[in-house]
């Protein structure tokens, strides 16, 4: 017996909320993979804290998406019973952890964006989203602090750490453009002041990222080619494996309560 994927009525607001929820879940899941394996105990604690912040954000956003959708979906159905093509997260966040430099660069790129984004979203005309934004902004601000301190140490540490961190930046750079992209569905929400235009945040993001990267004696790639697709369910091959693990219990024991 198999469990069918749920169907989702992706009205603009549902789709918008699921995209942010998926971002938080997928990155939180990636961070949780580190648990028990970090470079030192102190960092194990920090990675788990960031993972828990993101899982918390995901749960609030999924619950809101379920409420807006008004069918019988809930946080677990959204998380466990949608397939790769139904997931809406950014490609950046599903990229494998790699080494510690790769994980920190991914965190730094995203958190710097998320912090600006949630801060702007605190003025959303949608009061639930504004409240979620207020909580998430504080969490993201700490993620920026923590990851940027590490970027500086890794970039300006040893030759090996410099090389690994530069390589992580080079590998992940092409996934950063997607954070600032907007499609028609989201454009309507921006016009209605429910959402904010991420493109407007790009200059500030680039300024922060550039300044940390240069303090770290690292460099941003010249290339401006950017990968996209996550927001419409065209993912990298990595997401399917992540989901097969994340969803294994729900897929093996259909309908059970845990």
């Amino acid at each position: 017996m198999t469990v069918a994927n749920i169907s989702v009525s992706e009205t603009p607001l549902v789709l918008y909320t699921l995209r942010r929820a998926d971002d938080a879940l997928i990155l939180g899941h990636r961070l949780s993979e580190w648990c028990g394996h970090a470079p030192m105990l102190e960092e194990d604690m920090a990675l788990a804290n960031m993972g828990l912040d993101l899982l918390g954000q995901a749960r609030e956003l999924y619950s809101y998406a379920a409420k807006v959708e008004g069918r019988d979906n809930d946080e677990d159905k959204f998380a466990y019973l949608r397939d790769v093509r139904q997931y809406r997260n950014l490609l950046l966040l599903e990229q494998p952890n790699g080494d510690f430099a790769r994980t920190m660069v991914r965190q730094f790129f995203y958190a710097t964006f998320a912090d600006l984004y949630w801060r702007a979203m605190m003025r959303s005309s949608d009061l639930t989203l504004a409240a979620i934004a207020a909580k998430s902004e504080k969490e993201s601000a700490y993620h920026v602090r923590h990851s940027s301190e590490w970027i500086v140490r890794l970039g300006d540490g040893t030759e090996e750490s410099h090389r690994r961190t530069q390589s992580a930046i080079d590998e992940l750079w092409a996934f950063t453009g997607e954070m600032f992209a907007v499609d028609d569905s989201e454009r309507g929400l921006i016009d209605a002041r429910i959402a904010v235009d991420p493109a407007a945040l790009h200059p500030q993001w680039l300024k922060t990222v550039s300044s940390v990267v240069s303090e770290a004696t690292l460099a941003l790639p010249k290339s401006d080619w950017m990968q996209q697709g996550g927001r419409s369910g065209r993912h990298s091959e990595h997401l399917g494996h992540l989901l097969s693990e994340l969803q294994s219990m729900q897929r093996t024991f259909p309908g059970a309560t845990w």
């Binding site: 899941h29 899982l55 995901a58 466990y80």
Partner: peptide, 25 residues
């Protein structure tokens, strides 16, 4: 942790295993 069957269980388990790290520390 990566296979916990619900998001509530996943958060609780991650927090618990993190506590163990803290206790070791």
């Amino acid at each position: 942790i990566t296979r916990a069957p619900s998001l509530r269980r996943k958060a609780a388990l991650l927090a618990k295993v993190q506590d163990e790290c803290g206790h070791g520390l």
